[in-house]
């Protein structure tokens, strides 16, 4: 059953660019990674980072700057930018991680605003105008992937890689400790661990992944803007994750897909996109506590249980 679903998903992902505008698909994929990075913290450690966009946006500018000024191969630029975001994540984690709940959220929010301000003021980012003309250099320095359909497959491969990383972390010995921290942090401490250290590493990994998404996004669009660092994007990723299903691997992917498609459809109506998001958020909170994927899973389990009787 699961394998069948994966195969169908793979077939759809491979065929999609022949039916749908590749840039839209690639946007979805970038946000799939971004939402997965956020879910790693909220869903598996219980940390609500209300500034996840700082990792996305910073990395987009860093990757852009590297590509524009050095011309090194694309995968190296993306990796380097993701590492910068990971370092920022480690630093923010170091400061914020002793706090929990709303305090943690506010500290991360403050950091994100600060990063926004720095990027707005910096020369290299182009301030309000953003950074334009980010080139798609060759993969491994030799393979030309600049054509948008080819590039889609590159982004798809990167997404699979990123999701595999999340899967690996969540289902690792370290991941088991993270889930324990989420469920009962004082208990983990009383068992001889120092939860704050685990949380810092989780933030580092999460920020690295968010940065990976941001760098990829910059190469998709060929530009980076302040929108990627803005608090609305930090909020949007929360919505994606909750809508799809917190603490499930596929939930954030589904949530990212729905929100991006919806934004795309509603773009022509301006502010309506925001209003629709607000309404969705309310509906999810009221009726879909576990998100689309979580509720679907619960439904399947209920049906199985009924059949077993």
């Amino acid at each position: 059953m699961r394998i069948a679903l994966i195969l169908i998903g793979a077939a759809l992902a491979l065929a999609a660019p022949f039916f749908v505008y590749p840039v839209l698909l690639m946007t979805i994929l970038c946000f799939v990674i971004f939402a997965a990075s956020f879910n790693l913290l909220l869903g598996y450690v219980g940390l609500l980072c209300f500034g996840q966009a700082m990792f996305l946006g910073l990395s987009a500018y860093i990757a852009g700057q590297i590509l524009k000024t050095t011309g090194i191969s694309i995968e190296l630029a993306i990796m380097a930018a993701a590492l910068v975001s990971a370092a920022l994540g480690a630093f923010v984690g170091f400061v914020a991680v002793r706090r929990s709940g709303i305090q943690f959220a506010m500290i991360t929010f403050a950091f994100a605003q600060f990063v926004y301000f720095l990027l707005l003021q910096s020369e290299f980012t182009g301030g309000e105008d953003g950074m334009q003309g980010i080139p798609r250099t060759h993969l491994f320095g030799i393979i030309d992937i600049s054509d948008s359909r080819t590039f889609y497959y590159f982004v798809l491969a990167m997404t699979v890689l990123a999701i595999f990383v999340v899967y690996r972390v969540v289902h690792s010995p370290f991941g088991e400790i993270l889930k324990a921290i989420r469920d009962n942090e004082p208990r983990v401490e009383s068992l001889g661990f120092r939860p704050e250290r685990f949380k810092i590493l989780a933030m580092t990994i999460s920020a690295g992944l968010a940065g990976f998404a941001g760098a990829l996004k910059a190469t998709v669009f060929g530009f980076a803007t302040l929108t990627d660092v803005s608090w609305t994007v930090s909020g949007e990723v929360i919505l994606m994750t909750l809508l799809g299903g917190l603490g499930t691997l596929t939930g954030p992917m589904v949530g990212a897909g729905i929100i991006i498609l919806m934004n795309d459809e509603l773009a022509q109506f301006g502010e309506w996109a925001l209003i629709a998001q607000g309404i969705i958020l309310i509906l999810v909170i009221l009726f879909l506590r576990r998100g689309v994927v979580g509720e679907a899973g619960a439904l399947v389990r209920r049906m199985k249980a009924r059949r077993a009787k």
Partner: peptide
């Protein structure tokens, strides 16, 4: 129980290893 058994066991940091 395994969480407690991981205490003081270097494994707890291995985020790259399968469970």
């Amino acid at each position: 129980v395994r969480v407690a058994l991981q205490s003081g066991h270097g494994s707890a940091w291995r985020f790259w290893s399968p469970i």
